[in-house]
Design a protein around this nucleic acid. Structure first.
Lengths: 163, 163
DNA sequence: GTTATTGGTTGTAGAGTACATCCATTGATT
DNA sequence: AATCAATGGATGTACTCTACAACCAATAAC
C-alpha cells in the first residue's frame, strides 16, 4: 500500500463520514426550511432562474423528486414558477422576495458557522482546500457542458461521483 | 469580501453540493447493501467491535436510528451482537464472516471508483486533500475524547458541523 | 401528420430519520 | 441497602426524501 492509495482511502473515508453527518448537521443549522429544499432554493437563486430539469441533473435527483420539492417550496411561498414564452412545457423557477430573504438570512448563519469551524485555518490552507473541493466536484457533475469527449455513458454520471 | 471569505463560501458551497449528491451516488455504487448501513458496517469493522452508542455519536444519528440499522444488518447476517460481560446493557457489535467479506468486496469497488476519479491528481495533492478533509472533519466529531477545554455545550456537536 | 422526445406531475412504495416513551442495567447518594 | 439518576437500547409513530412507473402536454423529427 503506497502513499497514494492511503491518501485515496482517507479521502474516501472522510468524504463518506462527512456525507453521513451532513444531513443531521443541516437539519440543525436551519430547522425552519423543510430543508433539502434549501439547497434547491439556493441553486435557483444562484442561477437566477432555472428549470426543474437543471436541478435534477445537478443534484442527481429524479424529476419527480424535484417536482415535489419545488411544489413544497412554492407552497411555502419561497419559489415562483413562470411560464417560458418560448417553450410552453418549461417553467422557469425564481425565488420570491420571501425566498430571497430567507435565503440570505440562512446563508449568513451558515457562513458564520463555517467561519467558526474554519477559524484557525490559514488563508492559504482555506484557498487550497476550496480549490481541491472544486476540483473534486467538477468531475462528478452531470450538468456539465460536456467533458472530454466520450460522453458516451450519458447515464447518471459515473457512480464514483461522491459517497 | 476578502479571499478568506470567498474561500469559505466556496468550501461551504462545494461541501454542500457534495453532500447533496452523495446519497444518489452511494446508491449507485453498491446497490446490494441496504446501503446506509454500509457506512455503519464499515465503522464496526474498522473499530473491531463497537457499541451502538459509538455509532450514533460518530455519525450524529439518533440511537433509535442506529438500533434499527443494526437490526437490519443483523437480519442480513452481516453483523453479530455479543453481550458485554462487564456491562450487561451493552452489546458489542462485530461483523460476521459474511459481513467482512461483503465489506471488503465493496471497499475494493469503491476504492477503484475513487482511484479513477482521482487518477489525474498528483500524490502531493492527494495527501494534502486528505489531510484537509481529516482536519475539517476532526472538528465536527461528537465522539471525540474531549476537545480543548470548555466542552460546555455538550450538545449534539456544533451545528456548523457539515452541510 | 404521425411518431418520438422532452419537461413536468401524480400514484405508489420504501428507505432513513427523529422524537418520545419505555425497559433493563448500572452508578451515585444517602 | 434503598432510592434515584444516568446510560444503552428497543419500539411506537410519523414525516421527509427518494425512486420508479405511468401519465399528460408540448415540442421536435421524420
Amino acid at each position: 500500500m503506497n502513499g497514494t492509495n492511503e491518501a485515496i482511502d482517507t479521502i474516501e473515508r472522510e468524504l463518506t463520514a462527512f456525507a453521513r453527518r451532513a444531513r443531521a448537521a443541516a437539519a440543525r443549522l436551519h430547522p425552519d426550511l423543510p430543508l433539502v429544499s434549501y439547497t434547491l432554493l439556493a441553486h435557483i437563486n444562484d442561477q437566477r432562474g432555472c428549470r426543474a430539469t437543471d436541478l435534477a441533473a445537478h443534484y442527481l435527483l429524479d424529476k419527480s423528486t424535484v417536482s415535489r420539492q419545488i411544489g413544497s417550496l412554492e407552497k411555502l411561498g419561497l419559489v415562483e414558477r413562470r411560464p417560458d414564452p418560448d417553450d410552453h412545457r418549461v417553467q422557469v423557477l425564481h425565488p420570491t422576495r420571501a425566498g430571497a430573504e430567507l435565503l440570505s438570512a440562512t446563508h449568513a448563519s451558515r457562513h458564520t458557522a463555517f467561519q467558526e469551524r474554519l477559524a484557525d485555518w490559514s488563508e492559504e490552507d482555506l484557498t487550497r482546500f476550496a480549490a481541491y473541493l472544486l476540483r473534486y466536484n467538477q468531475a462528478g457533475r452531470a450538468d456539465q457542458a460536456n467533458r472530454t469527449g466520450h460522453t458516451g455513458h450519458t447515464g447518471p454520471a459515473d457512480p464514483a461521483t461522491a459517497a
